[in-house]
Design a binder for these strands. Structure first.
Lengths: 217, 217
DNA sequence: CATACCTGAATGAACGGTCATTCATTAATT
DNA sequence: AATTAATGAATGACCGTTCATTCAGGTATG
């Protein structure tokens, strides 16, 4: 109960550009979802978390539904953008280096941030019954899967791995990562982040033994 | 608007033993979660789905929270019980057959039923913020992981696979299956059940090449 | 066999609490 | 002074829960 909590000082109320407030509210929403679950999110909690007044969310977002949707988009867009940057980069000296980079990215602390993962899985849990959530969640998945398949195919060609199915390996990798994230989120003691990353590395190493080695890390 | 819908015929009101009504309500709750998401479940919807009156759920379960909890337990217990039966069975003629059986079970139509998976992931999505959900979701996981590790270790010994880590392979398999289920649930077009099962089979085949073959199925 | 009585399952109107949304008012900025 | 941002009390809708009432099936009585 510190007095300066959230600096809810009325004399300091400052008008801020829309974009600043929106991001502030989205971050508060992420925290609320992680702390209370999607069904525990209320406008009062979000605005208190943001240190602002109750009405502010409806001022910048037209409704609670929109706030939630934009929060989901914030998380998914960030991931897609950064992953796509790796796919499109030509600064990696080898296929192996690019695959390694994707692996490190998927288990970086930025991506495995508890709040962000909580948001992601909270929406996925409702996705089956809400077409809008489903659409946002899968918007980039096809692109991502295609990029990954192409990359894996290149590795297969380069390594001369016979009979390997790039599309299937890619689909498996994507699902494996989803599952590892989920288990790390729900039971971090049983599956700490490092063990999760190691499991993913094993998967890639057994698919591309010439490219991904197990010794390092 | 058919007249016989749900046989809501007042002249047919019959007292039923508690257990019958409870199961009826749990099934209705599963349907509601699949159709409306966890946050869209209301007592009115559940009881209408069951073809009963509003007050009935509070009569047999002390509260909505308890109804939801028992629904989650219904799904998790069913899975654990049947999986454990496979682990404990001694009617399989080989380790390979038992591993195959576990794989077939995980992708059987009973387990990959949309309603059941929707229930499972709806609760997992909220699990981080609700200790009770988390406890029920992970109650059997440790047992299951230990059983699987022991089985995989036996396969490693039998096949003479050097340097393989049974615990890591088991953790990876469990997460892979979770991820495949999730993707199958959310985007069945992109990942149909058969493709999901094939991806899981590939994982096992590359870990235990002497035991699991790719040719069949 | 008929009838009265009892038990407890089932019902659904009514209640009260929670929460998203609105908007009159106030404050900051130009 | 005009404009734009922010506030938070008030509103109304929704929903979980309660409980007086209804009714089916069983048991006792004559």
């Amino acid at each position: 109960m510190s007095k300066t909590k959230h600096s809810k000082d009325l004399t300091k109320r400052r008008a801020q550009p829309k974009e600043v407030r929106k991001e502030q509210l989205i971050r508060a929403t992420m925290k609320c979802i992680a702390a209370n679950g999607l069904s525990g999110v209320t406008m009062a909690r979000v605005t208190t978390e943001a240190g602002l007044s109750l009405g502010i969310a409806n001022l910048h977002f037209e409704s609670k539904e929109r706030l939630l949707l934009e929060t989901l988009e914030y998380v998914t867009n960030e991931y897609s953008r950064e992953q796509l940057a790796i796919f499109n980069s030509n600064s990696y000296t080898s296929l192996a280096a690019k695959i390694e980079a994707l692996l490190e990215f998927d288990f970086s602390s930025a991506v495995t941030d508890k709040d962000k993962m909580a948001v992601w899985f909270a929406f996925l849990g409702e996705a089956k019954s809400r077409p809008t959530y489903q659409r946002i969640c899968s918007r980039q998945d096809s692109v991502s899967e295609a990029e990954m398949t192409a990359l894996f195919q290149a590795a297969i060609d380069e390594g001369g791995y016979s009979g390997a199915d790039a599309a299937l390996i890619a689909a498996g990798y994507i699902s494996l990562v989803d599952g590892l994230w989920l288990n790390t989120l729900v039971a971090p003691r049983r599956l700490p982040r490092k063990k999760a990353r190691l499991a993913a590395r094993h998967y890639l190493a057994s698919a591309f033994p010439e490219h991904i080695m197990l010794g390092k890390n």
